[in-house]
Simulated scan of single mutants.
Amino acid sequence: MTKQTVFSFSLVLIFLFHCTKTIAQTPDILKILDKPGEFTVFIRLLKSTGMSDQINGEVQKSTSGYTVFAPNDKAFSDLRSGTINSLTDLQKVQLIQFHILATGVTLSNFQTLSNPVPTQAGGIGKGEFPLNVTSSGKQVQLATGVVKATLGKTLYSDDNLIVYQVDKVLLPLDIFSGYEPTVSAPAESPPVATKVNESGAESLILNGMWLYIGMAVNIAAFSL
């Protein structure tokens, strides 16, 4: 085997290794969310809006990374009935984009963000879907002007993509300005049963008898 052949073969191996490594390190947002088994609604929205393909494509090209806030199924079930179905196709896309930051933010870096924080849905001006982030230690909260969500566990993290669970769907004020969160109705107090025991019944009977006797005595005295 000549030196040129060996050199060419080495280049092929390096190229194949590089391609295999790149493919292995390319995150897929749907696979990440599918693994825990509690993000079915969010996955369905990502698919129907085409945002899953867009996220995967942009993550591969990004040099600053992306951060995704993923509401679980319970977060969606806490919404008023018909909240998501009432949105237009454009508003559904904006809702998903509102859960994405065009930069990778680790837990320790949330406190360095300056409010308002721009999302993929827009900038920081009025009508541009900004977020407000507050951080205290490991506790991070995201305020939209409609709801305040708490950051949960990290579902995935690498240099290109970080995915966090959030306990509420991030509802942008510019779409949900008139939205009122559901309020659980207070449980009705059970009716108080009136119970008369035997001694109480006897007491009532005796008191009634004495009442009639007293009335009879008064009537007799009056007629005399």
Rank of each mutant, 00 (worst) to 15 (best):
I55M: 05
F176Y: 08
K148I: 05
N72D: 12
G125I: 04
Q4L: 14
N218W: 13
T88I: 03
K126I: 07
F176Q: 04
L33K: 02
G82I: 01
A201H: 06
P172A: 13
T88G: 03
N109R: 09
E202A: 14
V217Y: 13
L16V: 13
A75C: 01
V183H: 09
M1N: 13
R44K: 12
A187P: 02
L170C: 12
F110Q: 03
V166M: 04
V192K: 13
G37S: 07
L46N: 06
T144M: 11
K21M: 15
Q4W: 09
G145L: 09
F15W: 15
L142N: 09
S48N: 09
F76T: 03
D159N: 11
T2Y: 10
L107T: 03
M215W: 15
V68L: 05
V169Y: 05
Q60C: 00
P186K: 15
Y66L: 12
G127E: 07
G37Q: 07
K138C: 07
F222Q: 11
T150L: 13
T22E: 12
F110L: 07
K153G: 09
N115P: 08
Q120Y: 07
Q60S: 15
K195P: 01
A75H: 03
M51E: 09
L90F: 00
V68H: 00
L11A: 12
D53T: 05
S48A: 10
I14S: 13
T22D: 13
I219F: 08
D34A: 10
K47N: 01
L131W: 09
G82C: 00
L16P: 05
I55R: 07
Q120L: 15
E38P: 00
R44N: 15
G152T: 03
T106I: 00
I14V: 10
L206R: 14
A193E: 15
T63P: 00
L142H: 10
Y66H: 02
T40M: 06
L87H: 02
Q4N: 14
V166E: 06
P172L: 13
F176G: 06
S184V: 14
G214E: 11
T63S: 06
G104M: 03
Q94W: 05
K92T: 05
